[in-house]
Design a protein around this nucleic acid. Structure first.
Length: 522
RNA sequence: CGGGGCGUGGCGCAGUUUGGCUAGCGCGUCGGCUUUGGGAGCCGAAGGUCGCCGGUUCAAGUCCGGCCGCCCCGACCA
């Protein structure tokens, strides 16, 4: 079954012009230092030392490795475009593995990497992989969603995820109920309300909120709902401090924020920094009265709020009746919060976003020159100049597909393997294995089908009929052929399609042809 | 890393609160007879260092201390 999936992936990669290879599992620290990922990729990086104390990681992905390999062997634009791939076990020290085979520390992945002379070439290579992915999932029989996604620690742009909607998935995505917008939750864009909810009325007033540091504590103490609050999150970057404002019941999305700022490393201010900046203990920060050089980035939703409550920059106090403009100025507005179910769709301005659980099966990225520059993967162009190759990378979670197929293809009786990946397409249930005549019929059918290239299993165990029927359904053979006493009387073999329960009777002599025909429809 | 739960025949569990003498149950396994087209029935049998180490006690699966392993939830949100 795993091999079937691998084979489909391999065939489509080859068809798309990619070349298979096999990269080292152990990768030296030095290589990862050069791209800065020894540190930045840290949580999932599985590190180890050899007997001499030299440090390695066990490959969680192979951008570094492939880029340094290609850097050595490819020197001219004439050798491009080039797409290489491998199917290999990856190791990631996940914080918490979960979900059976869905999120584990060790998994099989197909990873491909493209190298081009320029952006236009990358776009072509990327489109080929995109099409190959569509074909792969079609052939397997999985109904995947193609969604926008964040590039995360891989870096890159124009990334797309291939995801299967599934209640047991580890991922959340949003789809618009009107247009075809769909996105991973980590970067789903949402439309802000346009008008003020209420005309501002109040003047700011200081509220006594001893020890109320969290939204929950403040709302309990003041007896208000969290959407009346604005929370102020302070960050530190190379360019200085800034404040991020979101409504009290929303979650800030750091990936969106980092993407908006085009800053790789933002981090929340430390306790000491918050105290120095606000003059108050942590938990009472607010936008009113912050130092002028602190940029204030607010979610657009804030613009639609009036007379809200924020931290007072005073320990044990908040301010109510606050309004943008009257009491402080927002430096800039940006979509920096997590989308929630029911948010307006930014794409079509009419629809609303709905959330779904999903399993991420594939992810494709345009990387640009991030890795080729860091690792000196240069080629000469037509004019003899040394330029970095333009890269893309493309992954499929091969072992995870097994879970995905079972999630999508099952009923209360068990698995229903799609024929494309089924370990066996047909099971022959020989109900009376002691009957020599029937056993001979079953044996001949088995040999006939095998000779035709059909993957067939013969169940001639000494079990009762009920056991065999139930096992066949649990295991999920796409097609079942029954040979028993009734066959003896009628000369017929009974076929049943697992997927829809369709029954067929065929004469023993024609069984091979008939089975092939039925399989063609599955 | 923080929180919760669990470790008892091959598998799934009960028993632990309130210590008590042969540690039970279901499934599976083995043998016999019957049954034989939708997970068989009856009879009989085998199989357990109760995660590990130490302590309390006349007596420990049960109480106390330490350790190990597995599972689940959460994780900088002011």
């Amino acid at each position: 079954m795993l091999r079937r999936i691998e084979q489909i992936v391999r065939e489509e990669m080859n068809r798309a012009g990619a070349i298979e290879l096999f990269l080292p599992v152990m990768q030296p620290r030095d290589l990862w230092e050069r791209t800065g990922r020894w540190e930045s990729f840290d949580p999932p990086l599985m590190r180890m030392k050899d007997r001499n104390g030299r440090e390695f990681c066990i490959g969680p992905t192979h951008e570094e490795n492939i880029t340094s390999l290609v850097a050595e062997d490819v020197t001219s634009y004439k050798q491009l475009p080039l797409t290489l791939y491998q199917i290999q076990t990856k190791v990631r020290d996940e914080m918490r593995p979960r979900g059976g085979l869905i999120r584990v520390k060790e998994f099989i992945m197909k990873d491909a990497y493209s190298f081009d002379i320029d952006r236009a070439g990358l776009d072509l290579s990327y489109d080929k992989m995109y099409d190959a992915y569509v074909t792969i999932f079609e052939r397997i029989g999985l109904d995947v969603e193609i969604i926008r996604a964040d590039a995360g620690s891989m870096g890159g742009f124009d990334t797309r995820e291939f995801a299967l909607l599934c209640e047991n998935g580890e991922d959340t995505l949003y789809k618009c109920d009107k247009c075809d917008y769909s996105s991973n939750a980590e970067c789903a864009a949402c439309r802000a309300p346009e008008a003020l909810e209420v005309e501002p009325a109040g003047k700011p007033e200081l509220l006594d909120t001893p020890n109320a540091r969290t939204i929950e504590q403040v709302t309990d103490m003041l007896d208000v709902t969290p959407d009346r609050l604005v929370k102020t999150l302070l960050f530190n970057t190379r360019e200085g401090f800034f404040a991020a404002l979101v409504r009290g019941d929303r979650e800030l999305n750091e990936q969106k924020l980092a993407a908006y700022l085009q800053a790789g490393d933002i981090r929340m201010a430390t306790e000491e920094e918050v105290e120095a900046l606000t003059g108050a203990a942590v938990g009472f920060a607010g936008p009113v009265g912050l130092p002028d050089d602190v940029r204030i980035i607010a979610d657009p939703e804030i613009a639609a709020m009036s007379d809200f409550i924020t931290g007072a920059n005073q320990t044990d106090a908040h301010i109510g009746g606050v309004n943008v403009g009257a009491d402080f100025e927002v430096t800039e507005y940006a979509d920096i919060r997590n989308a929630v179910d029911g948010d307006g769709c930014l794409e079509c301005a009419e629809g609303h976003l709905r959330s779904y659980r999903a399993i991420e099966l594939g992810h494709i990225f345009k990387l640009g020159t991030r890795y080729s520059e860091a690792l000196d993967a240069l080629v000469q162009d037509e004019n003899g100049r040394q330029i970095p190759m333009v890269m893309g990378c493309y992954g499929i979670g091969v072992s995870r597909i097994i879970s995905a197929v079972v999630e999508q293809c099952h009923d209360e009786k068990g698995i229903i393997w799609p024929r494309s990946v089924a370990p066996f397409e047909v099971v022959i249930l020989l109900l009376d294995p002691d009957d020599e005549q029937l056993a001979a019929v079953a044996g001949e059918l088995h040999d006939d089908l095998s000779a035709r290239g059909v993957r067939v299993m013969l169940d001639d165990r000494e079990e009762r009929a009920g056991v065999k029927f139930n096992d066949a359904e649990l295991i999920g053979y796409p097609l079942r052929a029954v040979i028993g006493k009734r066959s003896k009387e009628s000369g017929e073999i009974e076929l049943q399609v697992r997927r829809d329960g369709r029954d067929l009777r065929v004469s023993g002599a024609a069984a091979g042809d008939e089975i092939e025909e039925v399989l063609e429809t599955l």
